[in-house]
């Protein structure tokens, strides 16, 4: 009896410890984000003079919260300047809508293309026998450790010769190339662990490699595809460097991250707009993440822990 009690007590204590620890970690991780969120509703002068927690310590200040930052980010900043004659001129700066579309134009093909190619490659490496298979696979894995920065200048030179610079095709290809090694490796892990019986019986029934790939492999590896899609999507969505180099910053092609960076102003005087900008750009990745996240952990682990 007493034994069971003390066991229960122990369980309780360890529960409290674990949950308390988890709560503490979550709290520490969330507080800064929450602070940024609150700040996104405050004016620059408020941000630079008092902390975001002022809304709790001095609830009266809650009335100063406003949507001005969001307004500036979404519809463009308003520039006010004096003309020599003394009258004020107002003008609207660029807004995020065009670059939002540009970002989508970049990110969707740059996610789909590498996944398709990588899935084909992974199937080939896993289920087809051809000479040099192991060597090619080792090469793909080795490419994982090559940082993309060292490829920027050579690729840029080639693009210049081909006249691809500043086109969407250029950046799709770039992201495809940079994403392929990891994609191939991850998908290989998964696809090679699919039960041999299924694939063999399909063969016996007379299915070609292509049919097997389309009818069996693709549906069966949805978790792995989805989890890599999240990776690639987030990476491309958040990318600034590759877009800057291959796409440039002209308004008709510039992606969201560039526009966001430019919002800060030449001297960085409008950094407070980043708070609102961050939450706006965060929106799409969050939607993607939550719609695909049930595959996420499964996709990463499935295939690797199964015998």
């Amino acid at each position: 009896m007493g034994n069971a009690n003390s066991l229960r007590q122990q369980r309780l204590i360890s529960d409290i410890l674990v949950n308390g620890g988890l709560f503490l970690l979550c709290f520490i991780w969330t507080v800064p984000t929450f602070g940024v969120f609150v700040s996104s509703f405050r004016t620059r002068d408020d941000i630079s003079q008092t902390g975001w927690w002022t809304i709790f310590t001095n609830p009266a200040t809650i009335t100063t919260l406003n949507l001005e930052n969001y307004n500036n980010v979404l519809t463009g900043k308003e520039y006010v300047y004096k003309s020599p004659s003394g009258d004020e001129r107002r003008e609207k700066g660029p807004n995020l809508s065009q670059s939002f579309m540009n970002s989508l134009t970049v990110v969707i093909p740059a996610t789909v293309i590498p996944i398709l190619i990588a899935a084909f490659a992974a199937y080939g490496f896993a289920w087809m026998r051809f000479p040099g298979r192991k060597m090619f696979f080792v090469m793909v894995v080795a490419l994982l450790v090559v940082p993309l920065q060292i490829a920027l200048i050579p690729v840029l030179r080639d693009y210049t010769k081909l006249g691809l610079n500043g086109t969407f095709l250029a950046i799709w290809l770039a992201h495809t190339g940079f994403g392929l090694p990891l994609a191939t490796y991850l998908l290989f892990n998964y696809i090679s662990q699919l039960p041999r019986d299924i694939i063999e019986s399909a063969f016996i029934d007379g299915a070609s490699h292509f049919t097997i790939f389309i009818r069996l492999i693709l549906p069966l590896s949805t978790p792995a595809l989805a989890s890599f899609a999240i990776f690639q999507f987030l990476w491309v969505w958040n990318d600034l460097l590759v877009a800057l180099v291959f796409l440039g910053s002209k308004p008709d092609v510039s992606v969201l991250q560039q526009q966001l960076q430019n919002l800060v102003g030449t001297k960085g005087q409008d950094w407070h707009l980043l708070t609102a900008g961050a939450f706006i750009t965060m929106f799409v990745p969050l939607v993607v993440f939550f719609s695909l996240q049930r595959y996420f952990v499964r996709g990463l682990l499935a295939g690797s822990v199964k015998g």
Binding site: L152, N165, L244, V245
Partner: peptide, 21 residues
């Protein structure tokens, strides 16, 4: 004349020049 601004100009212009772009 088409001006495009980027806050990373200092880094970017070197890369672009090396890449002949």
């Amino acid at each position: 004349v088409d001006y495009e601004g980027t806050r990373d100009f200092e880094t970017l212009v070197l890369v672009q020049s090396e890449g002949k772009a």
